[in-house]
């Protein structure tokens, strides 16, 4: 089996390498990929959208449909994770660990045992609990807000520097995941509940599609942000720039929600109870 697979792989590699003899050399300015549609994007981005970052203008304006459906793909992936893993029926009497803060004793409450009340004295810990490092916890708690601030910068400054909705949304999601790993899953869910994360998933897609629909209602094509000039009281080119920003914010919110909700579902196998 292994030898058979190796033969197939080597044959495929041989065919593909043979195929590269017709490919243009690396970093050739005259290669077919760089000669047809991309020069138009490079030369017209300023006069069409007034966005210097060509990647952003192509992403959200020239190829807005593509990006909208990519956003819907990640939304669908988040929803698929939810439906595959989420356990709604709570099996309440698995054994749980509680930490008594006053004495520092850890109690294991077995199946059917009486759980302590929610109080300041007891704090629930994970069953596969290891004493954690205070340094890691505090450092992550200090870093998280700055990571989120940087993510907002990445989203908002995507017009002029590398960045945009996808990157910024992933950074916010990563900050939430960092918080969840350094504390525990319940602390993260307390900050950003599952309901809010799922709401963000759909709200982001809604902002994107809603911006497109607004353009349709204002008399131009779907996702033709020039139409927004009528309600923003600017010229169509600046309106395109603002439309791109709105769409990027939508993408960022959607990506953040999807990343966080996938993490919640994966790390706790859908129980949202004890995770990493």
């Amino acid at each position: 089996m292994k030898a058979f697979a190796l033969i197939i792989v080597i044959l495929c590699a041989g065919l593909l390498i043979y195929g590269t003899s017709d490919f243009p050399p690396w970093s050739d300015p005259e290669s077919p990929a760089s000669t047809h549609v991309s020069p138009y994007y490079i030369e017209h981005t300023i006069e069409d959208t007034s966005v210097p970052n060509i990647v952003t203008s192509v992403l959200a304006d020239y190829r807005g449909f593509d990006t909208m459906f990519e956003t819907i793909v990640i939304f669908t992936a988040g929803i698929a994770c939810f439906f595959l893993l989420r356990v709604t029926k709570r099996e309440d009497h698995e054994s749980r660990l509680y930490h008594h803060l006053v004495t520092g004793v850890t109690l294991r409450i077995k199946e059917g045992g009486k759980l302590p009340d929610e109080s300041e004295e007891f704090r629930r810990v994970d069953t596969e609990w290891v004493p954690y490092s205070l340094i890691i916890k505090i450092t992550c708690r200090l870093i998280v807000p700055f990571i989120m601030l940087f993510a907002l910068y990445v989203i908002a400054h995507g017009h002029h520097s590398p960045g945009g909705g996808f990157q910024g949304g992933v950074i916010i999601g990563a900050a939430m995941i960092l918080f969840a790993i350094s504390n525990d899953l319940r602390a993260a869910i307390l900050r950003l509940s599952e309901k809010m994360a799922t709401f963000f998933c759909s709200a982001g897609v809604f902002i994107y599609a809603g911006t497109g629909l607004l353009c349709l209602l204002l008399g131009l094509n779907f996702l033709d942000y020039g139409a927004l000039a009528k309600i923003l009281f600017t010229d169509p080119v600046t309106a395109r720039s603002h439309g791109i920003l709105a769409v990027e914010i939508g993408v960022g919110i959607a990506v953040m929600g999807v990343v966080v909700s996938i993490y919640y579902n994966l790390s706790s196998a859908g129980k949202h109870d004890e995770g990493l």
């Binding site: 549609v37 991309s38 992403l59 992936a77």
Partner: peptide, 22 residues
């Protein structure tokens, strides 16, 4: 440089993460 492959792969990376989750 040609911005088009960057745009396509920018979305593909995030979609790859989402499909990895699934």
């Amino acid at each position: 440089i040609n911005p088009l492959p960057h745009v396509l792969m920018l979305t593909a990376i995030v979609v790859a993460v989402a499909t990895l989750g699934v």
